[in-house]
Amino acid sequence: MTSTTPSAGGILAAASALQGPQQTFTREQVAYLMHLAYESGRTATYLEDVAELHATWARNPIHRPTAEQRYQERMAEMDALGQARAAAEGRPYRIHPGGPVDWETGRPLGPGEDVNA
């Protein structure tokens, strides 16, 4: 056995050998059949675990926030931190509209204003 993952051809050859008239098998053939059985069990266990996970998610959808909910939570957290920092620095809090800002003052730059000016 040269590879650790059984190939489709190898599985078909093993199935044909088991159905054929051959009554005895070489060490390599037995080792390969044992490996196929092991991989088959591993795959079945993995698929069972995934099915159980999906069933758990289906039963408890409230415990799994959507990406949009996680984004909203993160934005609310950053907003609260911004408000706390503005209050600590004694300045008014304003939501940044996006776009370039003056690095020295934090003032949003208008259309056509140079970022490096």
Rank of each mutant, 00 (worst) to 15 (best):
A51D: 03
V115E: 10
E48D: 10
G90D: 09
P97S: 06
A44S: 11
S7N: 08
A14V: 14
A86F: 00
Q19Y: 02
A44G: 03
H63Q: 03
G90W: 05
R94V: 06
A76F: 00
Y46Q: 14
A44Y: 04
L53T: 09
R27T: 04
A84L: 15
G10C: 08
E68W: 03
G106P: 11
S7Y: 13
A8C: 00
E68P: 01
P65Y: 01
A15K: 07
H54V: 13
I95M: 04
L12C: 00
P61S: 04
E73S: 06
G82Y: 11
A44I: 01
I95V: 03
H63W: 04
G20R: 02
T56Y: 15
L18A: 13
E104Q: 10
A84H: 13
S3I: 06
M78L: 15
T43W: 06
G99K: 05
L36E: 06
E68D: 15
S7Q: 12
A13I: 02
T5E: 10
R107W: 08
P111Y: 05
E48V: 00
H54A: 10
Y46A: 13
E73P: 00
V50M: 09
T24I: 10
N60G: 01
R42A: 08
E48C: 06
L33R: 03
W103C: 08
I11Y: 09
A84D: 14
M78S: 14
Q23V: 03
M34N: 09
P92E: 06
R70A: 15
G10K: 06
Q72T: 10
L12N: 05
M34K: 05
Q69R: 02
M75E: 12
G90Y: 03
A14F: 03
R42T: 00
A88Q: 12
Y32H: 12
Y46H: 14
M34F: 06
Q23I: 00
E73C: 00
G82D: 15
A88N: 03
Y46C: 07
P111I: 02
H35Q: 14
S16G: 05
T45S: 13
T4E: 09
P92H: 02
S40T: 06
N60K: 13
R70N: 07
